[in-house]
Nucleic acid binder design. Structure first.
Length: 280
DNA sequence: TTGTGGCCCGACG
DNA sequence: CGTCGGGCCACAA
């Protein structure tokens, strides 16, 4: 079992015990690991203290992130980082695929795709001549479904297996990411509609550790009533994590849905919150 | 706390 | 065109 799988189990356990408490039923039991093991697990996985782990998961903490973001002109703000190495602060140059490229299904292009490890489970990473074009988490053993989805998205391309390149990209994307100014941004190339591309690009301005609500993101792309449409757009993001759709949460502080599971979304939020410069 | 109506966009006829 | 459903949201009781 990977560390992420153990973390996911802890999150599910917390959900379960919260539900049990509210139903006034029996105290939770079952496969809860010993407290000391959890402590080691959390610090090994995210280098944070267990009490911070819990803190970053609360509704109140999320609301505080939203307040701080909203207080300055609706733009999402960094919660003053106490730590120069912010996780996930990768520069991304996001291009939308042209209509011609969409029509042809990527005819004439080559895509190299393979599996990479990440703090959130293994993922399928793909790169074309135009840049990274796919990042999807896999929960199944085989990953057949993920390959199928990639193939359906780009039926016309030559698709090659390249785990070594995928691994390199994975390390760059999830590795310790001190932002190196001289390093050029990572090229990315996404298939999507005009509206989706607008939403995704705006999302790139939401820094790690910050959170934005669906409604505010809608306002930020100039359509304040389109919160629901924004939900649809972020849900169809082909570049999981790179385009940080996990930083979009509900107005009331709950995490909201996630294409790869709400547990994974919350794990990402916690992982990125390390060193955030405030407590609620 | 749950329900309900309405917002917008994209998918499918 | 017309309909329908969503990773939502505000508003009711």
């Amino acid at each position: 079992m990977t560390d992420y799988e153990r973390i996911a189990r802890v999150l599910r356990h917390l959900d379960g015990s919260r539900r049990a408490r509210s139903e006034a039923g029996a105290p939770p039991q079952g496969d809860r690991p010993a407290a000391l093991d959890i402590q080691k697990l959390i610090s090994g996985w995210a280098a944070i203290a267990p009490e911070d782990f819990l803190q970053y998961l609360t509704i109140e903490y999320s609301k505080e992130c939203l307040r701080r973001g909203a207080s300055s002109l609706g733009a999402a703000q960094v919660p003053a980082p106490s730590d120069p190495i912010r996780r996930g602060s990768l520069l991304l140059d996001l291009q939308a695929a042209s209509t011609a490229e969409l029509r042809s299904g990527g005819e004439g292009q080559t895509i190299r795709a393979g599996w990479a490890a990440s703090p959130f489970g293994r993922c399928l990473v793909a790169e074309s001549d135009r840049g990274v074009c796919w990042l999807a988490f896999a929960d199944s053993e085989t990953g057949r479904a993920e390959w199928g989805a990639l193939r359906r998205a780009w039926p016309g391309v030559r698709l090659l297996r390249d785990d070594s390149r995928a691994g390199e990209l994975g390390r760059r994307i999830f590795g310790p990411s001190r932002r190196i100014p001289s390093r050029p941004p990572l090229q990315a190339w996404a298939r999507g509609t005009e509206f989706q591309a607008r939403v995704w690009r705006r999302l790139l301005d939401v820094p790690p550790g910050a959170r934005i609500s669906y409604g505010h993101l809608a306002a930020a792309v100039g359509q304040p009533e389109a919160a629901r449409a924004v939900g649809g757009a972020v849900g169809r993001n082909p570049l999981a994590y790179l385009v940080p759709c996990h930083r979009v949460v509900c107005e009331d502080g709950r995490a909201g849905g996630y294409r790869w599971g709400t547990v994974r979304k919350r794990a990402m939020l916690v992982w990125e919150s390390r060193g955030a410069g405030f407590r609620s």
